[in-house]
Protein backbone atom coordinates (compact mmCIF):
# COMPACT_ATOMS: atom_id res chain seq x y z
CA UNK A 1 0.00 0.00 0.00
CA UNK A 2 2.89 2.32 0.84
CA UNK A 3 4.43 1.58 -2.54
CA UNK A 4 1.14 2.33 -4.25
CA UNK A 5 0.75 5.60 -2.37
CA UNK A 6 4.29 6.62 -3.20
CA UNK A 7 3.72 5.82 -6.84
CA UNK A 8 0.55 7.92 -6.80
CA UNK A 9 2.41 10.86 -5.30
CA UNK A 10 5.24 10.66 -7.80
CA UNK A 11 2.98 10.21 -10.78
CA UNK A 12 0.22 12.59 -9.73
CA UNK A 13 2.24 15.41 -8.29
CA UNK A 14 5.45 15.29 -10.30
CA UNK A 15 5.40 13.32 -13.52
CA UNK A 16 1.94 14.23 -14.78
CA UNK A 17 2.29 17.98 -14.10
CA UNK A 18 5.67 18.07 -15.84
CA UNK A 19 4.27 16.21 -18.86
CA UNK A 20 1.22 18.46 -19.00
CA UNK A 21 3.44 21.54 -18.81
CA UNK A 22 5.56 20.35 -21.69
CA UNK A 23 2.48 19.44 -23.70
CA UNK A 24 0.95 22.88 -23.16
CA UNK A 25 4.19 24.56 -24.19
CA UNK A 26 4.39 22.50 -27.36
CA UNK A 27 0.74 23.04 -28.28
CA UNK A 28 0.78 26.79 -27.70
CA UNK A 29 4.00 27.18 -29.66
CA UNK A 30 2.60 25.12 -32.50
CA UNK A 31 -0.90 26.51 -32.71
CA UNK A 32 -0.85 29.74 -30.75
CA UNK A 33 0.93 31.99 -33.24
CA UNK A 34 3.88 32.29 -30.93
CA UNK A 35 6.43 31.04 -33.40
CA UNK A 36 9.27 33.11 -34.70
CA UNK A 37 7.88 33.53 -38.21
CA UNK A 38 4.53 34.86 -37.07
CA UNK A 39 6.10 37.68 -35.04
CA UNK A 40 9.04 38.53 -37.26
CA UNK A 41 10.84 38.91 -33.97
CA UNK A 42 14.54 38.84 -33.26
CA UNK A 43 15.86 35.57 -31.94
CA UNK A 44 16.39 37.04 -28.48
CA UNK A 45 12.74 38.07 -28.34
CA UNK A 46 11.63 34.59 -29.36
CA UNK A 47 13.77 33.06 -26.61
CA UNK A 48 12.28 35.52 -24.13
CA UNK A 49 8.73 34.56 -25.07
CA UNK A 50 9.55 30.88 -24.75
CA UNK A 51 10.93 31.49 -21.28
CA UNK A 52 7.78 33.39 -20.37
CA UNK A 53 5.64 30.56 -21.72
CA UNK A 54 7.52 28.04 -19.59
CA UNK A 55 7.01 30.17 -16.46
CA UNK A 56 3.32 30.60 -17.24
CA UNK A 57 2.79 26.91 -17.89
CA UNK A 58 4.59 25.88 -14.70
CA UNK A 59 2.58 28.29 -12.58
CA UNK A 60 -0.70 27.22 -14.18
CA UNK A 61 -0.02 23.54 -13.68
CA UNK A 62 1.15 24.07 -10.09
CA UNK A 63 -2.04 25.96 -9.27
CA UNK A 64 -4.19 23.27 -10.87
CA UNK A 65 -2.38 20.57 -8.91
CA UNK A 66 -2.99 22.56 -5.73
CA UNK A 67 -6.65 22.92 -6.60
CA UNK A 68 -6.88 19.21 -7.26
CA UNK A 69 -5.23 18.34 -3.97
CA UNK A 70 -7.50 20.65 -2.03
CA UNK A 71 -10.63 19.39 -3.72
CA UNK A 72 -9.53 15.89 -2.90
CA UNK A 73 -9.32 16.60 0.82
CA UNK A 74 -11.93 14.67 2.81
CA UNK A 75 -15.16 16.41 3.69
CA UNK A 76 -16.90 15.78 7.03
CA UNK A 77 -18.99 12.66 6.93
CA UNK A 78 -16.95 11.13 4.18
CA UNK A 79 -14.43 9.54 6.51
CA UNK A 80 -10.92 10.67 7.17
CA UNK A 81 -9.90 13.86 8.98
CA UNK A 82 -11.18 17.03 7.32
CA UNK A 83 -9.18 20.22 8.05
CA UNK A 84 -12.04 21.91 9.89
CA UNK A 85 -14.48 19.29 11.12
CA UNK A 86 -17.18 21.75 12.14
CA UNK A 87 -17.33 23.54 8.78
CA UNK A 88 -18.16 21.18 5.95
CA UNK A 89 -16.39 21.99 2.71
CA UNK A 90 -14.06 24.52 4.33
CA UNK A 91 -11.02 23.36 2.39
CA UNK A 92 -12.94 23.35 -0.87
CA UNK A 93 -14.18 26.87 -0.20
CA UNK A 94 -10.73 28.40 0.33
CA UNK A 95 -9.08 26.08 -2.19
CA UNK A 96 -9.28 28.55 -5.09
CA UNK A 97 -7.37 31.13 -3.08
CA UNK A 98 -4.73 28.57 -2.19
CA UNK A 99 -4.42 27.81 -5.89
CA UNK A 100 -4.17 31.52 -6.69
CA UNK A 101 -1.38 31.92 -4.13
CA UNK A 102 0.48 28.94 -5.62
CA UNK A 103 0.07 30.46 -9.09
CA UNK A 104 1.60 33.71 -7.89
CA UNK A 105 4.42 32.09 -5.93
CA UNK A 106 5.54 29.90 -8.82
CA UNK A 107 5.29 32.90 -11.16
CA UNK A 108 7.37 34.96 -8.70
CA UNK A 109 10.06 32.27 -8.61
CA UNK A 110 10.02 32.22 -12.40
CA UNK A 111 10.44 35.99 -12.57
CA UNK A 112 13.67 35.61 -10.62
CA UNK A 113 15.07 33.36 -13.36
CA UNK A 114 15.22 36.09 -16.00
CA UNK A 115 18.81 37.06 -16.83
CA UNK A 116 20.15 40.24 -15.28
CA UNK A 117 21.65 42.97 -17.46
CA UNK A 118 25.24 42.18 -18.30
CA UNK A 119 27.84 43.35 -20.75
CA UNK A 120 29.31 46.76 -21.23
CA UNK A 121 26.47 48.26 -23.27
CA UNK A 122 23.11 48.39 -21.55
CA UNK A 123 19.81 49.91 -22.54
CA UNK A 124 16.72 50.91 -20.63
CA UNK A 125 13.51 52.64 -21.70
CA UNK A 126 12.79 56.03 -20.18
CA UNK A 127 9.35 54.85 -19.17
CA UNK A 128 7.91 54.99 -15.71
CA UNK A 129 6.49 51.54 -15.09
CA UNK A 130 4.00 51.05 -12.29
CA UNK A 131 1.90 48.13 -11.13
CA UNK A 132 -1.22 50.08 -12.01
CA UNK A 133 -0.08 50.95 -15.54
CA UNK A 134 1.07 47.40 -16.26
CA UNK A 135 -2.02 45.82 -14.74
CA UNK A 136 -4.38 48.01 -16.75
CA UNK A 137 -7.97 46.92 -17.24
CA UNK A 138 -7.31 43.38 -15.99
CA UNK A 139 -6.19 44.67 -12.62
CA UNK A 140 -9.19 46.96 -12.38
CA UNK A 141 -11.58 44.11 -13.21
CA UNK A 142 -9.88 41.88 -10.67
CA UNK A 143 -10.38 44.51 -7.98
CA UNK A 144 -14.02 44.96 -9.03
CA UNK A 145 -14.55 41.20 -8.78
CA UNK A 146 -12.87 41.12 -5.38
CA UNK A 147 -15.02 43.98 -4.15
CA UNK A 148 -18.15 42.22 -5.37
CA UNK A 149 -17.09 39.10 -3.49
CA UNK A 150 -16.47 41.11 -0.32
CA UNK A 151 -19.89 42.74 -0.53
CA UNK A 152 -21.59 39.42 -1.24
CA UNK A 153 -19.89 37.69 1.71
CA UNK A 154 -20.80 40.52 4.06
CA UNK A 155 -24.40 40.47 2.89
CA UNK A 156 -24.70 36.70 3.16
CA UNK A 157 -23.07 36.79 6.57
CA UNK A 158 -25.70 39.23 7.77
CA UNK A 159 -28.69 37.32 6.44
CA UNK A 160 -27.50 33.80 7.26
CA UNK A 161 -29.48 31.75 9.71
CA UNK A 162 -28.41 30.42 13.05
CA UNK A 163 -24.97 28.89 12.84
CA UNK A 164 -24.23 30.77 9.65
CA UNK A 165 -24.35 27.71 7.45
CA UNK A 166 -27.98 27.85 6.39
CA UNK A 167 -30.57 30.29 5.19
CA UNK A 168 -33.81 30.48 7.15
CA UNK A 169 -36.83 31.09 4.96
CA UNK A 170 -39.59 33.30 6.36
CA UNK A 171 -42.25 31.28 8.21
CA UNK A 172 -45.35 30.52 6.15
CA UNK A 173 -48.83 30.65 7.63
CA UNK A 174 -51.17 28.29 5.78
CA UNK A 175 -54.93 28.88 5.43
CA UNK A 176 -55.65 26.31 8.07
CA UNK A 177 -53.60 28.31 10.54
CA UNK A 178 -50.61 26.00 10.62
CA UNK A 179 -47.13 27.42 10.46
CA UNK A 180 -44.28 26.09 8.39
CA UNK A 181 -40.64 26.99 8.68
CA UNK A 182 -37.76 25.82 6.57
CA UNK A 183 -34.10 26.42 6.07
CA UNK A 184 -31.62 25.33 3.49
CA UNK A 185 -27.88 24.92 3.35
CA UNK A 186 -25.05 25.06 2.66
CA UNK A 187 -25.11 28.84 2.80
CA UNK A 188 -22.02 31.10 2.74
CA UNK A 189 -22.47 32.73 6.13
CA UNK A 190 -19.68 33.83 8.44
CA UNK A 191 -18.15 30.36 9.01
CA UNK A 192 -17.24 30.44 5.33
CA UNK A 193 -17.24 34.18 4.81
CA UNK A 194 -14.47 35.04 7.25
CA UNK A 195 -11.97 32.49 5.88
CA UNK A 196 -12.94 33.44 2.34
CA UNK A 197 -12.31 37.10 3.08
CA UNK A 198 -8.97 36.21 4.60
CA UNK A 199 -8.07 34.07 1.61
CA UNK A 200 -9.09 36.86 -0.75
CA UNK A 201 -6.92 39.42 1.03
CA UNK A 202 -3.91 37.09 1.01
CA UNK A 203 -4.44 36.29 -2.67
CA UNK A 204 -4.64 39.95 -3.64
CA UNK A 205 -1.55 40.88 -1.65
CA UNK A 206 0.47 38.07 -3.21
CA UNK A 207 -0.85 38.99 -6.65
CA UNK A 208 0.19 42.62 -6.29
CA UNK A 209 3.61 41.58 -4.95
CA UNK A 210 4.13 39.28 -7.92
CA UNK A 211 2.90 41.92 -10.36
CA UNK A 212 5.43 44.26 -8.80
CA UNK A 213 8.16 41.76 -9.60
CA UNK A 214 6.99 41.67 -13.22
CA UNK A 215 6.97 45.47 -13.33
CA UNK A 216 10.44 45.78 -11.89
CA UNK A 217 12.08 43.14 -14.05
CA UNK A 218 15.02 44.66 -15.89
CA UNK A 219 14.77 44.98 -19.67
CA UNK A 220 16.12 41.89 -21.39
CA UNK A 221 19.49 42.27 -23.09
CA UNK A 222 19.34 42.05 -26.86
CA UNK A 223 15.55 42.28 -26.95
CA UNK A 224 14.11 45.40 -28.62
CA UNK A 225 12.15 47.65 -26.28
CA UNK A 226 8.74 46.98 -27.82
CA UNK A 227 9.27 43.20 -27.73
CA UNK A 228 10.43 43.41 -24.14
CA UNK A 229 7.35 45.43 -23.28
CA UNK A 230 5.15 42.85 -25.02
CA UNK A 231 6.70 40.04 -22.98
CA UNK A 232 6.13 42.04 -19.82
CA UNK A 233 2.51 42.70 -20.74
CA UNK A 234 2.05 38.99 -21.48
CA UNK A 235 3.44 38.06 -18.06
CA UNK A 236 1.13 40.51 -16.33
CA UNK A 237 -1.91 39.40 -18.32
CA UNK A 238 -1.32 35.70 -17.62
CA UNK A 239 -0.81 36.36 -13.93
CA UNK A 240 -3.91 38.50 -13.58
CA UNK A 241 -5.96 36.22 -15.81
CA UNK A 242 -5.14 33.23 -13.66
CA UNK A 243 -6.00 35.00 -10.43
CA UNK A 244 -9.20 36.35 -12.00
CA UNK A 245 -10.15 32.78 -12.87
CA UNK A 246 -9.93 31.74 -9.22
CA UNK A 247 -11.43 34.87 -7.68
CA UNK A 248 -14.22 35.09 -10.23
CA UNK A 249 -14.87 31.39 -9.91
CA UNK A 250 -15.16 31.75 -6.14
CA UNK A 251 -17.58 34.65 -6.53
CA UNK A 252 -19.63 32.66 -9.02
CA UNK A 253 -19.73 29.60 -6.80
CA UNK A 254 -20.63 31.70 -3.75
CA UNK A 255 -23.55 33.31 -5.56
CA UNK A 256 -24.70 29.96 -6.92
CA UNK A 257 -24.63 28.26 -3.52
CA UNK A 258 -26.33 31.20 -1.85
CA UNK A 259 -28.99 31.31 -4.54
CA UNK A 260 -29.65 27.59 -4.23
CA UNK A 261 -30.11 27.97 -0.46
CA UNK A 262 -32.34 31.03 -0.79
CA UNK A 263 -34.75 29.30 -3.14
CA UNK A 264 -37.51 27.84 -0.99
CA UNK A 265 -38.09 24.12 -0.99
CA UNK A 266 -41.14 22.51 -2.49
CA UNK A 267 -42.68 22.19 0.96
CA UNK A 268 -43.33 25.89 1.30
CA UNK A 269 -43.24 26.98 -2.30
CA UNK A 270 -46.96 27.59 -2.36
CA UNK A 271 -46.82 29.67 0.76
CA UNK A 272 -47.71 32.96 -0.88
CA UNK A 273 -45.87 36.22 -1.39
CA UNK A 274 -43.81 35.72 1.73
CA UNK A 275 -41.64 33.18 -0.04
CA UNK A 276 -42.51 33.70 -3.70
CA UNK A 277 -39.95 36.44 -4.21
CA UNK A 278 -37.26 34.26 -2.71
CA UNK A 279 -37.60 31.82 -5.57
CA UNK A 280 -36.88 34.55 -8.10
CA UNK A 281 -34.07 36.03 -6.06
CA UNK A 282 -32.45 32.65 -5.62
CA UNK A 283 -32.69 31.86 -9.30
CA UNK A 284 -31.25 35.25 -10.20
CA UNK A 285 -28.28 34.70 -7.92
CA UNK A 286 -27.65 31.29 -9.43
CA UNK A 287 -27.78 32.66 -12.98
CA UNK A 288 -25.53 35.56 -12.04
CA UNK A 289 -23.10 33.22 -10.35
CA UNK A 290 -22.96 30.97 -13.39
CA UNK A 291 -22.42 33.93 -15.71
CA UNK A 292 -19.62 35.35 -13.58
CA UNK A 293 -17.95 31.97 -13.40
CA UNK A 294 -18.10 31.51 -17.16
CA UNK A 295 -16.86 35.01 -17.92
CA UNK A 296 -14.00 34.67 -15.44
CA UNK A 297 -13.05 31.37 -17.01
CA UNK A 298 -13.05 32.85 -20.49
CA UNK A 299 -11.07 35.87 -19.32
CA UNK A 300 -8.54 33.61 -17.68
CA UNK A 301 -8.11 31.51 -20.81
CA UNK A 302 -7.86 34.54 -23.10
CA UNK A 303 -5.13 35.92 -20.86
CA UNK A 304 -2.98 32.96 -21.85
CA UNK A 305 -2.57 34.34 -25.37
CA UNK A 306 0.68 36.24 -25.96
CA UNK A 307 0.62 40.02 -26.40
CA UNK A 308 1.82 41.66 -29.62
CA UNK A 309 4.67 44.12 -29.68
CA UNK A 310 3.32 47.58 -30.37
CA UNK A 311 2.93 48.10 -34.11
CA UNK A 312 3.49 44.45 -35.00
CA UNK A 313 1.20 42.80 -37.57
CA UNK A 314 -1.29 40.27 -36.30
CA UNK A 315 0.43 36.93 -35.84
CA UNK A 316 -0.97 34.09 -37.89
CA UNK A 317 -1.29 30.93 -35.92
CA UNK A 318 -0.77 27.66 -37.66
CA UNK A 319 -4.25 26.65 -36.62
CA UNK A 320 -5.68 29.59 -38.52
CA UNK A 321 -3.54 28.73 -41.50
CA UNK A 322 -4.79 25.17 -41.36
CA UNK A 323 -8.41 26.33 -41.28
CA UNK A 324 -7.91 28.63 -44.25
CA UNK A 325 -6.16 25.87 -46.17
Amino acid sequence: MAVGFGLFVILGLVVVPVLVTLLVVVLVRRFGGDGEASWAAPRAAVRARRHELLIASASAVASLVCAGVVLGLPAPGAGGNPPVPTVPGFAQAVGPFAAAVVLCVVRAVGELTWPRPSGAVRTAPLVRRTVWSLGGARLRWLLVTALALVLALILFGLVAGEGGRQFDHPPVTWPDGSLSTSSRGPFPGWPYGVPLLGGLVVSLLVTVATLRLVTRRSPLAGVPARHDAAVRRTSAARLLGGVQLFVGGTLGATLWIAGAAIRPGSGILGGGAEVAWLSGAGAALMVLGAAIGVVSGIAGLLAALPRHPAGAPEPRSRLAEGVQA
Partner: peptide, 9 residues
Protein backbone atom coordinates in the same frame (compact mmCIF):
# COMPACT_ATOMS: atom_id res chain seq x y z
CA UNK B 1 4.28 50.47 -19.89
CA UNK B 2 3.58 49.49 -23.46
CA UNK B 3 7.02 50.54 -24.74
CA UNK B 4 5.51 52.15 -27.81
CA UNK B 5 7.17 55.44 -28.53
CA UNK B 6 9.33 55.19 -25.44
CA UNK B 7 12.67 56.99 -25.44
CA UNK B 8 15.54 54.70 -24.62
CA UNK B 9 18.82 55.20 -22.84
Amino acid sequence: SSGQGAAEL
